[in-house]
Design a protein around this nucleic acid. Structure first.
Lengths: 351, 351
DNA sequence: CTAATTTATCGAAACGTTTCGATAATATTG
DNA sequence: CAATATTATCGAAACGTTTCGATAAATTAG
């Protein structure tokens, strides 16, 4: 069925009403009699009418778009954590009749950094920022009075909502599982420790061990890598195995990439995973199922995070709910092959 | 620096010229004196002016957007082959000052299937379709007189360009490598054989073997899976190992997912990869580096495919080159750990 | 019954650009 | 020198909707 590019004028003519009346019907607005509404609806169908996005946008000062911003390094990262989140936003946005425009910005900010064009052109009605980002980008959005939702990042700033991972719960579940499986020498490796998620995973690791009366041993910890890439997991695991006295029987990594790197180090150094050392990751990216052994990991519902962010943003755009919100998405421990039960009885420290 | 939402009117006033003259300067069009051009440019900078996308769109009957369509199953597939292509389009589109709008459609087509909203709203200037798609979606785009580029798919239809994988070259390189490594019993597993890429990979497999004087054995082939998912690789490899007389020393899979499935079957059945059977995949998705052993595979430059598609489409949109083009992207064999050299001397069949 | 309120329909301005034709000045060609 | 072509600048219509206020009819309340 060919689209004949009809306009609202032709619909009005065919239905015998004014353009204004047609607009009321198209937008499902009141003060149109049932009889007229039916006539207009029929004309719309017969003429296969669909309003143009541009014209609606100009007249109503809206764009129908949501901006999605992330940093360049997150954009190109091998493990598609943020692309899953993006796909989640796209699917949910569609339900609300929004398009999602994707862009990247530099991780740091200099004077002449290019501002996303969709901000300059006023081509988005709200913005989602995924991951850690320089504060000046947040200011750039807020200065334009655009609704903003952050994903996996938070700032103490008025009017910014966040969709966050319940990192503490995830790490708690991981430590809990390990201690219930008989592990006491549990290490932690991480990178980019200033990232709020990594920081809170590390805090939760120490806190949960303390709650269980297990000593937090510094020689089982390595968290000074610049980022959470695979190769930094390799290096961090290497350091832990080198400096630790009594070796860990389990290592919790700040994310799956570092867990994979840790497994690579361990295997290449003659340790067997999980026979000698269990490894747990965080995120549950696709690779977790492909590495050998398959990675036990804390599953983060990435597409759901994207969907929730869209819901929050659309509410802000439509001014349904102006409350600043922090939404924590629950996590689950997915048991695969990289963890081993040492003993079925939880070890209770003797003192 | 706060954006004060200035309009072209204010720029005109400040520069002491007309709106039309400002528009000529903004769009870098001729018939403006150098003196006036400088005055206007200064005013634009001082007022931090940026034209609205909506207004420009309405006036020029353009959207500034490119539509990106793929099927729902491709959208949600675990291995992010098409998301890599999408990311490639986004990066390239940005250079040409286009936004990319992503959507999915059903793999098949029924009467009341929803047409992508960006087509209905005339909100794209051209469309990229990635992967195999029902012909009616192609018609839906062409009926709207929109420029169209297909990725990893082709149809014998007027005016449709394609960015394709040089499947034959990839398979040729894989077979060549294997035969040069001493393999003669080389199997092939595939699914969704009607997909042009898969079909041409299979054809190339047979053809290259024949060129080398190696018999194409039907008992080393399994290609009747419905799609190229991991579990179908498992099943196809199982079938090949069950029905074949002299067992294969190598299996070429139609894609990485099936290669991974094949490795899983082989390992779970007591075979060692590559000691007993070498495995080669196609695509080089992220998982190829994570499976054990790491997968030898034909690398497809996915982001480049996306970038090329955007370039072709932008040319079509701007009517720079209306020629229908097929662009084949080169591929490379990436040697990892899943292939073994049987003998360093290429086996030349004795007859 | 009358006044007040709600419902129904419409005309036209507005949204912010692009672009075409009008007008005039300048440059080139025969 | 005159005719023709090019360059420069501008006014206003157009693009296709939304939406506000005008006008009138219908309904409700006192």
């Amino acid at each position: 069925m060919k689209n004949k590019k009809t306009t609202i004028k032709e619909v009005a003519k065919k239905a015998g009403v004014s353009i204004s009346t047609v607009s009321l019907v198209v937008n499902n607005l009141p003060y149109v009699s049932a009889e007229v509404r039916e006539k207009v609806t029929n004309a719309i169908k017969e003429l296969n009418f669909y309003p143009r996005r541009n014209a609606r946008g100009l007249a109503s000062k809206t764009s129908g778009n949501i901006g999605f911003i992330l940093t360049e390094n997150h954009f190109s990262q091998a493990e598609p954590f943020y692309t899953k989140i993006f796909l989640g936003t796209e699917f949910e946005a569609r339900k609300h009749r929004y398009y999602v425009l994707l862009t990247t910005v530099a991780p740091t900010r200099t004077e002449n950094e290019e501002i996303p064009r969709f901000l300059l052109e006023e081509n988005v009605d709200g913005v989602i920022i995924a991951g850690k980002i320089h504060q000046s980008w947040i200011e750039e959005v807020q200065n334009r009075n655009l609704p903003l939702v952050l994903i996996d990042f938070e700032v103490s700033r008025q009017g910014v909502s966040s969709v966050l991972i319940d990192n503490a719960e995830g790490i708690h579940k991981a430590v809990d599982y390990l201690t219930k499986s008989g592990h006491r020498e549990i290490g932690f490796i991480g990178g980019d420790i200033k990232h709020p998620s990594i920081k809170s995973r590390f805090t939760a690791y120490k806190q949960t061990l303390s709650e269980k009366g297990i000593e937090v041993r510094q020689d089982l910890i390595s968290i000074d890598q610049t980022d959470t890439a695979i190769e930094n997991g390799f290096v961090a695991a290497k350091k832990v195995m080198e400096i630790s006295g009594k070796k860990p029987t389990a290592i919790i990594a700040a994310n799956d990439a570092m867990a994979i790197g840790a497994i690579r180090f361990l295997k290449s150094s003659g340790y067997m995973v999980p026979k000698d050392v269990s490894v747990i990751g965080f995120d549950n990216v696709d690779a977790a199922e492909h590495v050998s052994p398959k990675l036990t990991t804390v599953h983060v519902p990435k597409e759901e995070m994207g969907a929730i962010a869209v819901k929050r943003l659309v509410e802000k755009i439509q001014k349904i709910d102006n409350v600043t919100m922090k939404t924590f998405v629950g996590v689950d421990l997915v048991l695969r092959d990289s963890t081993k039960v040492l003993s079925s009885k939880e070890v209770i420290p003797v003192k």
